[in-house]
Nucleic acid binder design. Structure first.
Length: 573
DNA sequence: GCCGTTTTCGGCCCGACTGTTTTCAGTCG
């Protein structure tokens, strides 16, 4: 079992215990471990083999024993017994908005409801309204919530979420009295996929703004409406929340709504130790005196911390690092001076070599690599070996025309075939300026096979960059089941570059593995994988992955100047 | 169930909103 599978088990235990009515702190402990396992950069099996499970945050004696049993046998007696007691089908009902563990237990024990389908039938047959604490409105809310489930799509892509949020923000900022308005939540933290949208505004008179929000033309229904907080469902099924505080309290509000929840809990614990209480409204000291903040930076300052940028706020060590004044120096978009993965009309893209070069020069880049698909990827109209010769003439002509202002490398995104061989022979690869190799097909091979397939490519001295290593497509298609401990060790040994693909449907390497790669000193490239000139600007999304992964900017080859880059390329040839 | 610059036991963040209640429980972020 891998980290994610173990995390799923503990998440399941937490939910079942919640329904059973176990004390919340116990279920919280399981949830914390699940979260920590998901962001653990190294394979949990290694901790297990080296007898260091208790070094994982939140893992104590009881959970350590459970991990051991799961990794040894693949099963867990504790969970099996729990599922005898609490039917796992009950978990379906937790997806319904406003239905939590207490309600599920109520429906199960007092109405015999065990599945989501039975819940819907019971609600429609008016069987829930007479249960304790329930009424007609609660019953109607459950029906509406179940209907919303089918409208609600999976998580949004980061790029799409920004588009929707920006358009709402433009109107929000025009509302009377709104001094400041920002996107917060996971969007402001640049998480790879987004669930709900959170907007915050500083405004002295919130009611008219809330009125505008809940009567927005795209509003499908109102989920909650209050003075400080309202929540709506848009016609496209996306939920948006708007939080408002007076402008002088905007700092604590923005801090709070940006999250993450785990970061905020940790921060509030830290405040408590200083006899302070932190909320979205203010910091209050032991005597009840209130301190308000219009700027977020001052909230951190008041707690004795340097400013922590939103991308780091996942409770993955950033608060400790801030306390010890060792927050990482992080990559900025303006540090990016080159892009090593883009397509042109020579394969499946919209713009010519010259158009791409001009657009990249406009962005301030000193070097680009043209990396069209190879013939093996049939759907992408890949280049044959003969076609490469023609393309080289085109690149040479554009280079001559544009002179020294931008360097255009001839590369290719070489297809890694199912048997692990590459689409071009070595003698062709050796004549290229730079070579990206990527997986697109047969991604479902078993772990050992696909890991070996990629290791072979990493060891090929003609390959410089592994493009989007896992092949995942957000939000739903999982990447290859790679053994990252093997892949990263081989990458370090070979001195090869791993790509953080900046297309927001990829963001691959993901942040967890990018962080580990950086800790291991592996070189990384961030590439937009542009198929149009506009898509060169997707780079910002790749930069966000590097920031969230604490990546050391010096390891990112896009930050190097041209001389350093060329001498590195020469050393590989 | 975890954890310790006030603790190996007794804590474990804080507030808004809703609906069912006449003061609060449940859910959510």
């Amino acid at each position: 079992m891998n980290n994610v599978e173990l995390a799923d088990v503990f998440e399941r235990i937490a939910s079942l215990l919640d329904i059973k009515g176990e004390v919340v702190y116990k279920t919280l402990a399981y949830r914390r471990v699940a979260e920590n396992l998901r962001s653990l950069p190294s394979d949990v099996n290694i901790y297990w083999q080296e007898n260091r499970l208790d070094e994982i945050p939140g893992v104590g004696k009881a959970i350590s024993e459970k991990i051991d049993e799961l990794l040894r046998t693949g099963n867990l007696g504790f969970l099996e017994r729990l599922e005898q007691e609490v039917p796992p089908s009950l978990l379906e009902m937790l997806q319904v908005p406003d239905v939590g563990p207490r309600k599920v237990a109520l429906f199960w024990k007092q109405a015999g409801v065990k599945t989501l389908a039975e819940l819907e039938a019971a609600a429609r047959n008016e069987k829930l309204r007479n249960l304790p604490g329930m009424g007609e409105k609660s019953e109607a809310r459950i029906i509406a919530g179940i209907e919303a489930l089918s409208r609600r799509s999976h998580r949004m892509l980061l790029g799409n979420a920004w588009i929707i949020a920006d358009s709402l923000l433009i109107d929000l900022r025009k509302q009377p009295g709104v001094v400041r308005a920002e996107a917060a939540g996971s969007l402001r933290r640049w998480k790879s996929t987004i669930g709900d949208l959170d907007l915050v505004a500083g405004c002295a008179n919130p009611l008219p703004v809330m009125e505008w929000f809940t009567h927005h033309p795209d509003c499908h229904r109102i989920l909650a409406s209050g003075e400080n907080k309202s929540s709506i469902e848009l016609n496209n099924g996306i939920n948006v929340q708007l939080w408002i505080q007076p402008p002088e309290r905007f700092g604590t509000l923005l801090q709070f709504v940006t999250g993450s929840k785990e970061h905020n809990v940790h921060l509030r614990e830290l405040a408590q130790k200083q006899n302070l209480s932190l909320s979205e409204q203010a910091i209050v000291d032991a005597s009840g005196k209130e301190f308000v903040f219009s700027h977020e930076e001052d909230v951190y300052k008041a707690l004795g911390l340097p400013y922590i940028i939103p991308e780091l706020r996942e409770d993955r060590g950033e608060i400790q690092a801030a306390q010890e004044n060792r927050l990482p120096n992080l990559l900025k978009l303006e540090d990016i001076r080159s892009d090593f993965h883009m397509h042109t009309t020579w394969s499946d893209a919209a713009n010519s070599v010259k158009e791409m070069a001009l657009a990249a020069r406009e962005l301030g880049y000193h070097t680009i690599a043209i990396t069209d698909h190879t013939s093996g990827l049939g759907i992408a109209g890949g280049l044959t070996v003969e076609g490469l010769v023609e393309q080289r003439k085109d690149i040479d002509a554009v280079q001559k025309e544009l002179g020294d202002s931008i360097l255009i490398l001839q590369g290719a995104e070489v297809e890694i075939k199912a048997d692990g061989s590459l689409d071009y022979p070595d003698d062709v690869l050796s004549k290229m300026d730079i070579v990206v190799a990527s997986l697109h097909t047969s991604l479902r091979q078993p772990r050992e096979r696909i890991t070996e397939r990629l290791v072979n490519v990493i060891r090929n001295p003609h390959v410089d960059i592994i493009g989007h290593p896992s092949g995942r497509l957000l939000p739903n298609r999982e990447g290859a089941d790679l053994d990252y401990d093997v892949i990263l060790k081989e990458a370090r040994k070979a001195g090869i570059v791993l790509e953080i693909n900046a297309s927001y449907s990829r963001l691959d390497l993901d942040e967890v593995h990018a962080r580990l790669a950086s800790e291991m000193g592996i070189l990384l490239a961030i590439d937009a994988d542009a198929h149009t000139i506009d898509q060169l600007q997707l780079m910002a999304f790749g930069v966000s992955v590097a920031r969230r992964a604490w990546v050391n900017p010096e390891l990112i080859i896009n930050t190097w100047n041209r001389e350093k880059l060329l001498s590195w390329l020469a050393s590989r040839r």
